[in-house]
Design a protein around this nucleic acid. Sequence first.
DNA 1: ATCAGCATGTAAGGCGTTACATGATTCA
DNA 2: TGAATCATGTAACGCCTTACATGCTGAT
Lengths: 179, 179
Amino acid sequence: MAKDRKIDLVILGLLSHEDLTGYDIKKRLDGAIGFFWKGSFGNIYPALSSMEEEGLISKKKNSKTGGRERIPYHITSKGTKALRTWLEETQVSNELKYETLLKLYFGGAADRSITIRNIEIFEEDVKKSLAVLNMYKENLEKVLDEEDHVFYYLTVTFGIDTYEAYLKWCTKAKKLLKN
Amino acid sequence: MAKDRKIDLVILGLLSHEDLTGYDIKKRLDGAIGFFWKGSFGNIYPALSSMEEEGLISKKKNSKTGGRERIPYHITSKGTKALRTWLEETQVSNELKYETLLKLYFGGAADRSITIRNIEIFEEDVKKSLAVLNMYKENLEKVLDEEDHVFYYLTVTFGIDTYEAYLKWCTKAKKLLKN
DNA sequence: ATCAGCATGTAAGGCGTTACATGATTCA
DNA sequence: TGAATCATGTAACGCCTTACATGCTGAT
């Protein structure tokens, strides 16, 4: 498997539950997963091609349900093994490029009101995200005992807990900057 | 300025306080800034070259204090303006690729003990980072009234607050997974 | 008729990581 | 003598974003 292309693992993880097309995968990445991992068509389709060549996934028959042709992919036993190997690896890389914090750190180069406004913009974004996450949480609580929903639930509560910490920090930060 | 090369802003931000060499910049990125932004030599040196060509920064006389030649850079008025323009922009992109959450989300594909162990690994990392951040915080509290230290202080408390939220979540998550 | 949504894919170009090349000085 | 630290830079390679190309179906 491509060493530095982590999208492969996202695809394997999703396919471990059900067969999906590239378009379906993109939709998943635009949903709950999008809070911690992003993907694009130009990212997904080439990954699907090379993963099929490697035998990690396989094409299923083209089906036509409305719209255009659909090409659902299925995970192979080799793919399942690769997914499990990755899960068992102890090394992880959590890369983050937090432009909000960068602007905060260099806030001294502009008027203090700019930084306060930037914090307020961040605060609004976080509030919107929290609303979405809380909706996810409510839906998941109804089905917590089913399949792998505990794992989805935990990623959602992770988001909620950290976003709530962000909001508390925003309040404190604004207070400190306004003296 | 290169449209998608955010390292430029990090460099401008750092140079807005003092003249620095590429090597110095790397050291800053390995310190407190590293918690929300990473950089490498192969990233920094080419950026310095192209930013000098654009007139955002300028080379200062080579000085030799031990070791090899040093090439400190100085921010120009054009550079200062670019930095301020960026700070005043309302759009920000906070990109994160959280492999820990990805593994959690797809935890159902392996034994539950694997996910618990992965959470514990994450927990240890967070604890170590918290110790470093708390040290930064203590040092900054002594000089909070000076220059731009409020901004550094706020990025540090942001880290501490979110990392503490992570730890609380870890405890809850482990409890839930162990039933 | 036309727009939105479904659906697959390619191409260009930029950005970044990693490894490599080079070399001086200081300290054990 | 050898390792560590200081210091600058290049090259290969891969990955991703963005934009583009194409085209069907169903609803308004």
